[in-house]
Design a binder for these strands. Structure first.
Lengths: 148, 148
DNA sequence: GTATACTATGTATAAATATTCATTTTGATT
DNA sequence: AATCAAAATGAATATTTATACATAGTATAC
């Protein structure tokens, strides 16, 4: 499944320096996902990953895409992310829930039914448990969540 | 000579969407600079340009430095920037004031006494009017503010 | 159910980019 | 100026990435 794979790709490039599609294919395979270079190429395009050059080799990183960037900027606002049934609950530092909610709505509109933000708590509602798990994963990645 | 050429490359990619080395070679030639693809490849590496993919084609852009990057990324969150006495007021789209405040705090901590963010409004307090004017300018630049 | 469209994927290949190696240019030192 | 070292560059090539085309899967409408 595409979404799983792309989520995995985001995780991988965060974990270790990936220089080529082939390296990514190899890492995906270790995670039990087997695809060809063509598919990885398409995934990279869709995820808008960029290859940042440096003295020794270039590596793929998530593009400082507006929305992604917002997430990274807000990472210090997020305290905790948890899931229950089809819900994902995000606890933030006081006053930041609204900004986090705006970002989540924007980035994951396709996967969520809606979200409600208070002052320091954000509730995200998805269609089912599977979806919620995915969203939880994405939110964690987006906000660079280290907990658990 | 290398410096001229690389400066020209930065100018070119800012002016128009460059998708390939060959396109860049062509533009450089129009500017009276003749080089091969190998050299352009090396220049791109040294300048740390990145190729950002999208639905139709990928283009080269300068990977900007961290702080600038932050501001530019949040530019779409900022609606209005104004000043009164020693205060600068920034109006944002709903929920984004906190994120903008975090960036301003981070980048201009030396010039501001403090900032208070609501949901869509950010108040920046400086020591005096002169300082506020400076900060207003910096904020406008940082968030690529086009108004007024 | 079947037909129709749309999406995802693999294979093969084209296109684009990076690098090796040889050569030239540039700069510093004497 | 002559010499040496380092940097820059081009030509050829290797490597990497993107895509055209064919096929399979998935959903939707009838």
């Amino acid at each position: 499944m595409k979404l799983n794979r792309q989520t995995e790709i985001l995780r991988i490039i965060k974990e270790r320096p990936i220089k080529t599609h082939d390296e990514l294919i190899y890492e995906l395979e270790k995670a039990g996902i087997k695809v060809t270079q063509a598919t990885v190429s398409r995934d990279i395009k869709e995820l808008r990953l960029v290859k940042v050059p440096s003295k020794d080799g270039a590596i793929y990183v998530a593009s400082r895409d507006e929305d992604e960037q917002r997430g990274v900027e807000l990472k210090n606002s997020v305290k905790m992310i948890r899931r229950a049934m089809n819900n994902v609950v995000v606890r933030t530092f006081p006053g930041m829930a609204g900004a986090v909610a705006a970002t989540v709505d924007n980035v994951m509109s396709d996967q969520i039914l809606g979200s409600i933000a208070g002052d320091d708590t954000l509730l995200i509602i998805t269609s089912d448990e599977a979806e919620a798990m995915q969203v939880e994963e994405r939110v964690k990645l987006l906000f660079d969540y280290k907990g658990e």
